[in-house]
Computed example of a mutant assay.
Amino acid sequence: MPNIGLFIVCVLIWGSTWIAITYQLGHVAPILSVAYRFSIAALILGLFCKIKGLSLTLPAAIHLRMLMVGLCLYTLDYTLLYYSEQYIISALVAVMSSSIIYINVVLRRLLLKKPIRTEVIWGATLGLVGVFLIFLPEFGQLGTNTMLWVGIGLAMASFFFAAMGNVVSEQILDRGTPVVQMNFWAMSYGVMFTTSYALFTNTPFLLPNSTEYWTALIYLALFGSVIAFGAYMQLVQRMGSDKAAYVVLMYPIVSLLISTLFEGFNWHWPAITGVLFILLGNAIAMGKLKRKPPQPVI
């Protein structure tokens, strides 16, 4: 699939997972929802490898890095994200997720010694302005709700670990590791961490009696984890984690549309302007608006 197709898959699916997560809140501890989600996703990936005859044998050094991805991306990132959405609406989480791009750029430079691409910084900055304009009314709540700050802190910690997982994933993929096998092991390690934590804290392993919970869980596992992460990791492999992370500035638009239907979001002119800023920033970040070199004077 071409990069644009992979990009669209990630944007459409992850733009809808914000609201899907809210249907799981309050039924079981968030750590269990994360464990259930990635258990199903890892099982699907494992069966796919078995059917296709794909080897799951990888070097020990790669396993250590996949263990880190499992801890950062599939354990801490999503667990903290689930907890944060108990205090703030999904649209505001989508706004703050834009910070992943900047964290990715810094970590990519520090850990992988790869150059900082200025088009990504400029594009991300325009996109961040756009996202801020879209959800401008949400910031009026910051001074009136103390628990909102708790949610913001949890969300920001979540995005730091997401960025760390992205950069380590790029390092793994740079070594020629297949995407499907990497995701299988990383998600499996994530399940190991989340389940161990649940056992250590004596969290009751409950199975909710709720159709909406299980519908959301299957959607998040199959589409949000198996398909979207498969597409995303291919983008990381082809474009780098800095450019691939730009999906976090695009899927708030999808989140916005869904929030309009389910959370009563009201459109306003700053929101429309914000969408235009995001689209312009995307064009810059992906190198679609590069300056032409000056023509020689004859």
Rank of each mutant, 00 (worst) to 15 (best):
V93E: 10
A94F: 03
W267L: 08
V167P: 04
S84W: 02
L206Y: 14
N282S: 14
L73V: 06
I31A: 09
P252R: 00
E170K: 06
P115N: 10
L280E: 00
H268D: 01
T57Q: 11
N209D: 11
A245T: 02
Y232T: 00
I284N: 02
W269Y: 15
S259I: 00
R291I: 14
S84F: 00
G26T: 02
N183Q: 14
I31M: 12
L217Y: 02
Y251R: 05
I44T: 11
L43P: 09
K113D: 13
W14H: 11
I172F: 01
V247I: 13
L280A: 11
P296Y: 11
S97A: 15
L126W: 05
L6S: 09
R37G: 01
G46D: 03
M182W: 06
E170G: 08
V297E: 12
E85G: 05
T201C: 08
L47F: 14
V105W: 00
I121P: 01
G130K: 03
D242N: 10
P208N: 03
F135K: 07
P293T: 12
S210R: 02
W267V: 06
S241C: 08
V179L: 15
T211C: 09
P296Q: 06
Y78Q: 14
K114R: 14
I103L: 08
L154N: 07
I134A: 04
P115W: 09
W14I: 13
L142G: 14
T211R: 10
P115R: 13
M187W: 01
A244Q: 05
L47S: 12
I19P: 12
G240E: 07
V191G: 03
D77G: 06
D77P: 07
G176W: 00
L54G: 04
V120I: 07
E138A: 15
T79H: 07
G224V: 03
N209W: 05
L206E: 15
V191L: 01
S188R: 04
I13Y: 03
P293S: 13
